[in-house]
Design a protein around this nucleic acid. Sequence first.
RNA 1: GGGGCUGUAGCUCAGUUGGUCAGAGCUGGGAACUCAUAAUUCCUAGGUCGCGGGUUCAAGUCCUGCCAGCCCUACCA
Length: 681
Amino acid sequence: MPRRLLVTAALPYANGPIHIGHLVEYLQTDIWVRFQKLRGHRCLYICADDTHGTAIMIRARKEGRSELELIGEMSESHQRDFAGFGIEFDNYGSTHSDENRKICGEFWQALRNEDLVTERTVEQLFDPEAETFLADRFVRGTCPKCGRTDQAGDNCTCGHTYNPTDLIDPVSTLSGATPVLRESAHLFVELEKLHGFLNEWVAESGALQSETANYLKGHFLADELRDWDVSRPAPYFGFEIPDSPGNYWYVWFDAPIGYIASTQQWCDKHGEKLDDWWKSDECEVHHFIGKDITYFHTLFWPGMLKTAGYSLPTKVHIHGFLNVNGMKMSKRDGTLVKAETFLKHIDPAALRYFYASKLSSRVEDLDLSLTEFVDKVNSDLVGKVVNLASRVGKFAGQTGLSETYPDDGGLFEKAAAAGDAIADAYEQCEYAKAMRLIMELADAANPFVEHARPWEMKKDAERTDELRDVCTVALNLFRQLAVYLTPVLPSLAAACGELLDDPIVSWDQSQTPLVGRGVNKFKRMMDRVQLENLEKMIEESKAEAAADADVTDSPAPTFNDSDQPLKDEPLADEITIDDFMKVDLRVARVVAAEHVPEANKLLKLTLSLGGDETRQVFAGIKAAYEPEKLIGRLVVMVANLKPRKMRFGMSEGMVAASGPGGAEVFVLGVDEGAQPGQRVH
RNA sequence: GGGGCUGUAGCUCAGUUGGUCAGAGCUGGGAACUCAUAAUUCCUAGGUCGCGGGUUCAAGUCCUGCCAGCCCUACCA
C-alpha cells in the first residue's frame, strides 16, 4: 500500500551560503525521500529559502541594494549548491511569496478567531541611526556584573546573563550608535492556552524522539508557557500584519508556514490539491530539522497547525550538529567549508556516503574526521562496491549476462533477504546501520570473484560460459548493492543503470537478478578521495574566511558613496609618470607630536625616516587628532618638499591626508609591515 | 548547579527481551593473486567490554555508587 508523504527540511536563511554543516540535514532528508520514492511511495521533498527578518534587511542595506535582489541571488546560490550535491527538491520556494503571504493570513485569522492573540507594549532598544529596533544580538556593551567591555546583548563571558537594556554603554553593532529605549506594541500568541494540547501531543503522538519529548516536558511544558512575540514593528523586511498596520510577522512566524506555501506552489504546478497533502489523514508530514530549532517545531508550530486546522507532523526528525576533526566548525580553521568550495575539490557522492555512514535517528552531533572520511569512502565505496563492477566490467562487456542466473552459493538470495532489514534501517533514519548492513554484503561479494578466478577463464576460449557466469554473478551482486545504495548514491545508481541498460527505479530490483542481456562498455564510476584535496579545500576555506573578515570587520560598510568630494575638488590635469616621480613620498613614523600653543590648526610632528633621519613637520590636523594618539603611527609624508619657514619654525615636509579640513582630516595610514623610509611608488 | 547521552581491540563502531557475545570494518603484521582505481583474497590482531559494589545458577547486557567525555539548560524542572 503506497503511502503519501510530505517531507520538509528546514528553510535555509537567505543571509549566507550553504556549508557542509547545513548539508547534513539536506542530505539526510534527501536520502530519506529518495528511499521512499524508490519504495514506490508518493513523496514530496519541500523546501524554500527563509528570507525575512532584520538580518536580511540590514545586510541588504549595507550592500546598498534591495532585499529582493539579495534574496533572489541567495536563493539561486542555495539551489545551485543543493543541486551540486544531488539534493533534489520537488519544490523550492521562498517565504517571500504570494502563497506564503496568503497562508500566513489564514493562520493569523485562525489564531485571532481562537482568541489566541494579545497585544502588549514592549520596551526595546532602538538604534536611532539605523532606525530599527535591535534584537539582542545586535547590541554589545559592558557587562553590568563584571565590567567586561564589548559583551553580547544577552550574556557575558563571565557567565552572567542580563537584558540588553542592562548593559552599560550599549552600542548598536549596526551603526555604532548608542541605542535608546523605545516602546512599541507587539502582538503575542498565548501559547499557554494550548498547553493541554501540547502536553498530549508531545507525550502521545509519537512524533518526537523520546529524548526530545523528555526535554520539552522538563524544560517548557513543566511551567506555564510564555506568550510568543510574533510581531515586529517597522522597519522590518517581511509581511505586514493585515489587521495591525505598521507591524510585521516575526520571521519565525512565517518561516514554517513557508513549508505549506512551497507545497502550494507545487500543487499549482501539478494540478493537485493542497488539502490532500496538508489536511489529510492519508498523508504523513515529516519535518527534518537541527536541534537548534527544536522548540519552534515542537511547540509553536504544532500549536499553529492545530489552530489553523492543518495536519500535525507525523514525525519531527531532529539531528545534531556537525563537527570537523572533533571540533566545532570554524572559519578561522577553514573547517566551515562552503558547499561550493567542497565541490571544487571533492566528489559530493563521497560526502553523501560519509554522512550516511554516520547518521542515526538520535539527536547526536556527528564528526567529520578528514582521515576517517578518506579511509571510509575509499575502502567501502571504491575498494569494495565499485571494485566489484570494475574487476569484471571489461570481461562482461564481451560476454554479456548468462541466460539464467548461475549458482553463486546463495549470495544473491541472501543479499535479497537482507533487503527488508536495510529498508527498515532507512525508514527509521538509521542510515549508519543501513550502510553497515550493505557493506557486509559487499564484503561477501568480492571473495566470490576472487575464488572463481575469471582472469584464468579469460585465457581459455572454451571457458567463455564460465566466465559469463562469473560476470553475471558479480554484476548482479554489484547491482544489488547499487539499488540498496541508491538513496545515498544516486550517481552510482545511474552509472549502474547505464552499464546494464536498466535504470534503477525501484527497490524491488534488488530482489531479482538481471539475466540474458548485454553489458555496456564499462566506465569508471568513482574516483578515490585524496587527502591532499581535502587539505586544499581546508586551505581555500581559510583563505575565503580571511578575505571575508577584511570586508565585514570594517563597521557598516556602505558603498553608495557620495559624489560630493569629487565635485568639490575636480580631478587635476593629467601628468606623466615622470611628473609623479618628482614627488618623493616616504613612509615615516611619528616619533613626537605636540600642540603649538600659538597655532589654531597646527600640530608639530617629528617624523622619523628610519635610523637618525628625522624631519620636523607642521601639520594642519589639530582639530582632528590628539597628539598622543599619533605617536608611533606610520604616516605618508612628502619628503622632498622644499622646507618652508613658518612662524613657529621650519616645516620640512608634509603629511599626506585627505578631507576638506578642520575636523574632517584623515591622515593616510600604511598597512602593517611597512618600514619608515620606504618610498611610496 | 540541574537534565540527557556516551564510555567494548590503535581508529570507527555492532552487540536484540541477561546464558558460545567477547565481534565487524579500517589500520598494523605475514602470505597469495593480478581481473580491478598500489584495488582484491587468505591468515593474524590476545581488548579485565571506564572503575567499584549488588541482583542472578548466569551480566558489556539489569540495579547502584564513582570517574571521564559530549550535548542541552542554566538559580529552573
